[in-house]
């Protein structure tokens, strides 16, 4: 049995971490590693960067093709896709968010890791409200936390 099957938290070893170059351009990371019957991410990608052998296999992102547009993250029913982009000092993380209140641009929020633990502060850079009510929130965090921050807590 894999550890994540017991805890519900996948570890960094289970994720294909993109190269520094790829992360600088900004790419989608699919934290979806089980064989589940699902594929809307494949259909959503405008540049065909996501592939899948059949509907039950986990998605595979071609990091050299991916433009970081986050369209896949917006449709993913598992809320399992995050777009990560490295800047000089910080990392930009785009994550799906389905809680109220929605944060606002410029607001300081708490950055949370995969276990919901506070790991630092995050500044909201962008909030895209979608018609179907899953918002995409982009926050900037300390560059070192690029592969750790996967959620936020609004402090209001």
């Amino acid at each position: 049995m894999k550890e994540y099957e017991r805890t519900g938290v996948i570890s960094i070893e289970e994720i294909r971490v993109p190269s520094e170059e790829q992360l600088k351009r900004g790419v989608a990371i699919t934290e979806c590693i089980q064989e589940i019957p699902c594929n809307p991410c494949v259909d959503a990608c405008p540049v065909n960067a996501i592939s899948m052998e059949d509907i039950n296999s986990p998605p595979f992102v071609d990091y050299d093709r991916c433009t970081g547009c986050a369209q896949c993250a917006a449709v993913c029913p598992g809320l399992a896709i995050f777009v990560v982009k490295l800047e000089d000092e910080s990392a930009l993380i785009t994550l799906p968010y389905e809680f109220l209140p929605l944060p606002e641009k410029g607001e300081e929020v708490e950055a949370l890791d995969r276990e919901g633990r506070g790991v630092g502060k995050a500044i909201v850079r962008r909030v895209v409200k979608k018609k179907d009510n899953t918002a995409l929130v982009t926050v900037s965090v300390d560059r070192k936390l690029a592969m750790d921050v996967r959620n936020i807590r609004v402090l209001r």
Partner: peptide, 10 residues
């Protein structure tokens, strides 16, 4: 599904 579990954990 682990993706559902992950939403809760985070």
């Amino acid at each position: 599904y682990s993706v559902h579990a992950a939403k809760l954990r985070r």
